[in-house]
Every structure is written in C-alpha cells, then in structure tokens.
Design a protein around this nucleic acid. Structure first.
Lengths: 195, 195
DNA sequence: GTAGCTTGTTGAGCGTTGCTCAGCAGGCCG
DNA sequence: CGGCCTGCTGAGCAACGCTCAACAAGCTAC
C-alpha cells in the first residue's frame, strides 16, 4: 500500500543497460507464477516502479519483451549445461544429463513454466527454445562422436522431449533413484543413436 | 465485404445445443491458424454471425470456451485412436500407433496447434490433454498386459512425448520409411516397459 | 555556475478486447 | 390472440497493448 501522502519517490535514472536487465529479471521472476497470456505490461512496469511507456521504449512490443525474457532463461540453462572445457567426451554427455536433472530439481517451477511458455502458441517465443534444444543436441552428438545427420538429429531431439517429460514427472514423483534415472536416460540415448 | 445497405439478415434462433456445437466447431477451424492468445471472441462471434454477448451466454469466460474447443479436439483424437472392440492385444497397440501417425499426417497443422495450445501456459486447457494422454497410456498398458504401476506409467507417458515429438518432426521431414518409424516407436515402447 | 544537449522518463489518450447487464424478440404454448 | 420461456442484442465499463509529444535528470562545455 503506497501512502498517498508520499511526496514522490525521487525519480532516479538508470542506464539503458541496467533498465533492460532489470526488466528482463522481473520477467524471469514472474515467469513461474504467470502464464504468458496473463503477464501484463502494467504488472511488470509496476514492479519496476516505472511507467508502461518506458517498457515500450525498451521493447517495442509485448511479444518482443516476452521473447527477451525467454531468451534470458534459455541462456541460463545453456550456460549451466555446457560442459566445461577439457572434459572427456563420455563425461560430457553424462555430465550434461546430470546437470540437466539437477537444474530441473532446483528450478522446478521456473523450468516447467519456461518450457510451457516456449512450447505454447507463439512462434517467436518457441523459436528461442528450439534453437537452444538444437545447440544442445549438436553438442551431444559431437560428444558422442557421431555424425550430425538429419535422422539422428531427429531422434536425439525426440529423445530430448522424452527426457524433458520424464524428468519433469520424476521430480514431482520419484519412482526410481536418481542414478537409475540417469542411467535409463543415457541408455535410451545410446540405443537410439546406435541405430 | 458486407453490403452496408443489406436490410438485416433474418435473425434466426438456434437451439442451445446447436449453437454451442457451432461455436466449438468454429474454434476447431480457427485453431490451426491462430495461437490461443490471438484468438478473439470478436472473431469467433463474427464468424458465427452473432454478438459477442451470446458467446458469453454459452461460455462464461474465454478460457472456458477455449477449454471446450480443446476438449472437442481431444475427443476427436481419442475416438480415432481407440481400438475397435474385438482386436487382439498385440494389434491394439500397433493399430493405435498406426492410426496416430495417420492422424498427424492428415491433420498436421491442426494437431500441432492442438498440442501446442494444450502444452502452453494455461493449466485448465493443458489438463484436458493430460487427461487424454493418461487414458491412452492406460489403454496401451492394458493391451500390453502390463500392470499399471506408477513407474511404468511415467515411462509410457514420457514415451508418448517422445512419439509426439518424433512423429511431428517426421511428417515435416521424413528421414525414414513409415514402417521403419512405426517399428522404431513400438520397439522403444517395448524396451521401456520391459524393464 | 549556468547554458545546452542527450536521453531516460512520463502522462494523456486511442483502439481493442474480455466481460456485464438490462431488456428486446422469436417462436411455442394455452 | 395473449403470455411466457429463452435465445439474443447493444450499450457500455475496465483493463490492456501501444503511441506520441513533451518533460527533466545529469553530464559536458564554457
């Protein structure tokens, strides 16, 4: 409840970069509790303590803003999963898998919201996640030492959908041990790519 | 282009059932070309030749309307996939798989839009598809003669995500023959449930 | 210090959309 | 023909995405 008698909070200017980052950050925080369609510019602006107009100064369109938020989320995931340099190929894949499960365990709500937001409707938004999925598959195939042909690519992408879904279910209702899960996922991937 | 001089089309009353069905039908037709967020009540009402108000008489909320449309789409899929009575258990699963691929082949755009709409954001909507997925998995497990325990259920659900994704990719870019695809999907399912 | 410029920032306002409500009117009944 | 049930409409409100002209914070130049 803002006191109506408050003279007015001293308006402070932020650099363009700061403001953009702040707005994207607010989007990331809102993501887990708010489906895209219910995310309003008003709410974001209110949280940032700025006018709606300013948000449109940084993002020409609501879609553009939402895409930027999605991209930020995708980048976080990407940076977390990418194998550190100097890892052996075998370790790269199992390491990524392990970190992926850990990621979903830690940011369950956020990650699920991210995936749903990316999967749902809007092509501009889903493209962002598609791209990240594509890059991840590329890394995985390289680590496995397999040629990146179209057929295998499809299989690994579909395997990723399998993984997303299974891990998503597993964190809500663990029906096996963590190592069992990791083993199963790795095994399915191996069998699929061996074909 | 509606002639402005048209005296006024004779307003005709429909029974409540007819009108509801018509509105849902319009939703189904709009689904493939229109992401949820861009589906407007105005557009639907315009196509039905009725006022916005009437739509709110049948569906209290836009969400409720959209849920009804999704349910209709899910029911169509369900009826198409359900094995006819008197089929042998083995045929049931491969038959369902075959019909599923056929379904995606035939209604590619519509089905993809349906899945995306169901996956995206809104819990009320996604629940509808979740339910259908659950029933399909139940049928599959029964046909396979396997107990419906939690673990297997998760695996088959995840396999379904795998299948959705792979078939979706395959129809856009066939990297293998149709029988190969069916065989692969069936094989993966068998290996997963055999564990 | 102050004039001036850059640019972060705002408020008023427009068109559209989801949704409400009081009441009109089609068509079946007596 | 009169009455009633109920399908149906139009006006209108609040909230939203988005635009635009103008204000003002804070740096630089003198």
């Amino acid at each position: 409840m803002t006191a109506s008698s408050a003279p007015r909070p001293p308006r402070l200017r932020r650099s363009a970069g700061d403001r953009r980052a702040q707005l994207v950050q607010i989007g990331l925080e809102l993501l887990p509790t708010t489906p895209v369609q219910e995310l309003t510019i008003d709410e974001v602006a209110r949280r940032a303590g700025i006018s709606r107009s300013l948000l449109f100064h940084y993002f020409a369109t609501k879609r553009e803003y939402y895409t930027a938020v999605t991209r930020a989320a995708a980048d976080l995931l990407w940076e977390h999963l990418l194998p550190p340099p100097g890892t052996s190929p075998q370790e790269q894949v199992s390491g990524m898998l392990d970190r992926f499960v850990g990621w979903v365990e830690t940011y369950r709500e956020t990650h699920l919201a991210f995936v749903r937001g990316a999967a749902g409707g809007d092509p501009w938004v889903s493209e962002v996640y598609e791209e990240t999925r594509g890059r991840l598959v590329e890394v995985a195939l390289t680590a496995l030492g397999l040629p990146d042909d179209l057929r295998r690519r499809q299989l690994v992408l579909a395997w990723f959908a399998f993984t997303e879904d299974l891990v998503g279910q597993w964190v809500e209702e663990p029906t096996m041990s963590r190592p069992e899960l990791l083993d199963l996922l790795h095994d399915v991937l191996d069998r699929l790519t061996a074909r």
